[in-house]
Design a protein around this nucleic acid. Structure first.
Lengths: 116, 116
DNA sequence: CAAACCTTGACACGACCGTGGTAACGTTCG
DNA sequence: CGAACGTTACCACGGTCGTGTCAAGGTTTG
């Protein structure tokens, strides 16, 4: 049977076995299962895991964010409702662009800014 | 000057003053400010706050989710990267539709299911 | 001018995210 | 058959989300 087991997949993707199960639970990458229930990661899943990792690192987002995007993707009702809300008013990007967003998302414990 | 103060706005929208500040911080609804720095909520903001509340309740999502959607909306780079990743493979919706998503998102502490 | 309201900053708290670890039990392979 | 590996179910822990509350100080208004 083709497909790497979870530890092998962990080895080639950089995720821990623990996280591979978590990612699956989040509905993002679900490998096939062997007759006895072992996870079998094929080339497609492995690639998906690698690009997922890069996606998260590159933008500093979380699994939940991607999971939410997925949910929006296959629930037109949700997607339309959210888009409609966002469309309503532009929020001039001067105020809340990457700067403030990051500030909010990460919310380390920095002060300052106050946007003179 | 037109515009309700934060407590008045809280009264008509159902949000607490605390949460109105939090929502602003998340970059979702930013009222104008008076000369001395008081928040002034106009009809547009009030409506936006009410619909936001309904959006969250209706789909059981969080402010962060909407904030993330907003971020995707005005960062084409992020949006394209996420969409590209999601597009890659369809994930048959039998496995991870609303059921599992909710299970993951809320993750109360329920057992069972195992989808006989 | 004093009461009532606003502002930001902080402490606090339960719930959940992202992780790791361990336990208890089934599977594969040498 | 025993070692190595897989599965699920838990405990734990720092960090963030969504909230409330309180303190210290400026503003508005009767």
């Amino acid at each position: 049977m083709d497909g790497l087991t979870i530890n092998e997949a962990a080895g080639t993707t950089g995720w821990s076995p623990r996280m591979l199960r978590y990612v699956e639970r989040a509905g993002l990458v679900s490998p096939a299962r062997s007759a006895s229930g072992y996870r079998l990661y094929g080339p497609a899943e492995l690639q998906r895991l690698r690009t997922l990792k890069e996606l998260l690192n590159r933008f500093g987002i979380g699994l939940s964010d991607v999971a939410f995007a997925a949910q929006m993707k296959d629930s037109p009702e949700l997607r339309e409702a959210v888009e409609a809300w966002l469309e309503a008013q532009p929020r001039r990007p001067e105020d809340v662009s990457a700067e403030d967003w990051l500030r909010f998302e990460q919310e380390k414990h920095e002060r300052l800014l106050t946007a003179a």
